[in-house]
Every structure is written in structure tokens, then in C-alpha cells.
């Protein structure tokens, strides 16, 4: 049962990918992208946690004979960076969508392709 969190991450990853690849609306595609990237956060944070592990703070007087087990803080720190990267990607995506909307008056991929075909 301890690996069930990874299956959860895979489900989130797959649903994000599905939303991204099948939707017609650009905004929904970006939402799918956000879900897809969140699955990585779950995956990494699950890696850092171990059973009975506590928060990694310096509570032992003598570090050589410490009875506590600590969770690894490294994946959390890495994911802080990944969250920032994901946020930046979403912002660039929305900025592009805004420009597309100003240019074509629509955020639906099918409508835009149609208007281009007529234009040609």
C-alpha cells in the first residue's frame, strides 16, 4: 500500500496529458498543462517522505546518536523551484493566449484553423 501515492501521481499525470491533448480550447490546454506539472510535485514530495520520518529540524543534542528518523527536505526544495517554473510557464501561456485572442477573436483551435483556411 505504501506505493499507492505513485499510482495517484500517474493518474494525475495521465489526466493532465489527456486534457492537454484533447481539448479544443487553449485555456483548457493550459489548465491541463498545470495538472500535468502538478503530478511531478506529488511524485517528488512522496520520494522525500519515509515511514515514521519527522520534520527535518535540529532537535538532537548529539548528532551522532540521534534516535529520530528525518524525512528528506531536498525534494521539497527542488519542488519550490519547479512550482515557480510551472507558474512562469502558465503566465507565458496565458500571455500568448491573450495575444491570440486579440489577433483572431477566439481561443478555440478549431475556429482559428477554420478562419485561416478561409483566409488562404
Amino acid at each position: 500500500m505504501q506505493n499507492i501515492i505513485y499510482f495517484f501521481a500517474v493518474i494525475v499525470l495521465a489526466s493532465g496529458l489527456f486534457i492537454m491533448l484533447t481539448s479544443d480550447n487553449f485555456v483548457r490546454k493550459i489548465i491541463g498543462l498545470g495538472i500535468f506539472q502538478s503530478s511531478v510535485l506529488i511524485f517528488y514530495i512522496a520520494l522525500g517522505k519515509i515511514r515514521n520520518g519527522i520534520v527535518p529540524i535540529d532537535i538532537c543534542v548529539n548528532t551522532n546518536s540521534c534516535s529520530h528518523i528525518f524525512s528528506s527536505p531536498l525534494p521539497h526544495v527542488l519542488m519550490l523551484t519547479a512550482i515557480v517554473v510551472g507558474f512562469a510557464t502558465m503566465s507565458v501561456g496565458f500571455a500568448l493566449i491573450y495575444q491570440i485572442y486579440k489577433e483572431y477573436g477566439s481561443v478555440l483551435e478549431s475556429q482559428i484553423t477554420q478562419s485561416e483556411d478561409i483566409g488562404e
Binding site: L17, M20, F26, K29, L33, F36, Q37, T89, V92, G93, L96, I97, Q99, I100, E103, Y104, I112, E116
Partner: peptide
């Protein structure tokens, strides 16, 4: 070319994946 926006958006999707 306004189509560059659509191309860049595609690139953003696939690049992020």
C-alpha cells in the same frame, strides 16, 4: 505573421511536456 503565436503556443505545450 500572426500564425507565429499559434506555433509558439504549440511549442510551449510540447516543450513543457
Amino acid at each position: 505573421n500572426p500564425r507565429a503565436l499559434i506555433g509558439a503556443f504549440d511549442y510551449l505545450m510540447l516543450g513543457t511536456i
